[in-house]
Design a protein around this nucleic acid. Structure first.
Lengths: 252, 252
DNA sequence: TTAAATTTGTCCGTATGTATC
DNA sequence: TGATACATACGGACAAATTTA
């Protein structure tokens, strides 16, 4: 309650930054529990003896760091930290890889359409036919009620004409591919990058502006080495990390 | 010059967001070259018919996305995009993996000390001795004059007592390990995550607040499977991506 | 069910500081 | 040294979302 914290004016360090540092320190030292509400902006402004906007700058910085999460009308909350681990291995299956870490998971197909592949997709799926068509799916993965990833995936429509029916019926890529005649498949290559969340990500993954998404672009192939799926999945970076066990990785 | 762009007030979309979207669009459509200076805030404010602070909000959002880069006293510049690809494979060597993509590279040892391993480091290096000591190195990697990664790495000091001398002399982990009796070594596991850059990152990697770092924590083992190096490397996410070729990855 | 209060979000305006040219 | 341009901080007003009475 008391204005115990000293804010140094004209010290070379911006006031908003000092406030952010202090709030971060207090969270770290357990003054707040995860999920708990931070005092309102006006209260903090009074406590630190600054304008509300200065507090807002500090909160904005901490939000961006992933330390806080603000919700209009409700308040500002202490974000929780722990990440799920997603193993990237030859036989990674979305549905089984997280099973041990969570109690409940769900996959929602947001949209599906048949389209002409972009150059990127055609190259990944090795489609040389001028008239090639692909199934395009946009899916959302939810673990324990919280969205963790959004995925764009493409499948050869000529080779798998009924794939969409199978996929929609079973909700499983593995099952749909099996019904389409692909007994088994493997992850061939994965490209990992990170960028800021875009509008779509913010909406579906329930992120705040400034949040980070970890992107994995992967090509899955059948037992003959022919690509069957190309996908680009965007994970909420504060909820997920990737692990690669490479004792039998390629030499090169 | 003319105020051609329409800003819709009370449209449900914040004005600063509309301006950010418009500037992003113009950059994407080539209205500006990479490295070129954006018009001053006041000019943009006049063009869009808004207050300077509203333009600042838009610029802040784009800075955070990595689209722009503001420098006090100089101006705001269009950031450049293209990423280097870092292959994560069983025999990845920092010094050789990027050789084809860049013309010049350098590695600087920022600091070295002998310390007691943290629980995390002891576990990774499988050091059970109570009195274990490790070499700790902080290094900076530079490609074509631009910093790309910062690394913390640890080596068993008891097993490799002269490692620091060898490393400092050769500047190569591979050579220093060889001189220490390790003929060959392999990447055993890698953990990848992404977070916002901290103060150290901002300084050494020359990033702006809000920038993203891609983190790879990896354990390297000798031919007997005994850990020889544990490292945590932070890459500037806008300059690097990871690739994993997994035709011979683990089954599990 | 409604209305008021609370809390965060947006936008404007002004003043001053700091860094660069 | 002065002009330019970004950074910080203050103040006020209203909007939007949620919770409380």
């Amino acid at each position: 309650m008391a204005e115990t914290t000293k804010i140094a004016r004209n010290s070379g360090v911006a006031v908003w930054r000092q406030i952010a540092d202090e709030i971060r320190r207090e969270i770290k030292h357990g003054h707040f529990k995860r999920g708990e509400k931070l005092p309102p902006e006006m209260t903090l402004a009074a406590r630190f003896g600054v304008n509300r906007h200065t507090v807002r700058s500090a909160i904005a910085a901490l939000t961006q760091e992933g330390v806080l999460r603000a919700e209009q009308g409700r308040g500002t909350f202490i974000a929780n930290a722990k990440r799920l681990t997603y193993p990237i291995s030859k036989r990674t299956r979305m549905s089984t890889s997280l099973a041990e870490q969570i109690t409940q998971q769900e996959r929602v197909i947001l949209s599906h359409r048949i389209e002409k592949p972009s150059a990127e997709v055609a190259h990944a799926l090795q489609l040389s036919d001028e008239n090639a068509q692909v199934h395009y799916f946009e899916t959302l993965s939810i673990a324990d009620g919280q969205p963790v990833s959004m995925s764009d995936s493409w499948f050869d429509q000529q080779r798998f004409p009924q794939f969409d029916e199978f996929y929609k019926a079973s909700g499983s890529v593995t099952k749909a591919l099996k019904q389409s005649g692909v007994e088994d498949y493997f992850r061939k290559s994965t490209l990992i990058s990170a960028q800021h969340a875009n509008g779509q990500d913010l909406l579906h993954l329930k992120l705040t502006p400034g949040a980070i998404v970890l992107t994995a672009q992967s090509v899955n192939v059948d037992t003959n080495g022919v690509p069957v799926e190309y996908s680009a999945t965007r994970f909420a970076a504060d909820r997920m990390e990737f692990s690669i066990e490479s004792m039998s990785l390629n030499e090169e």
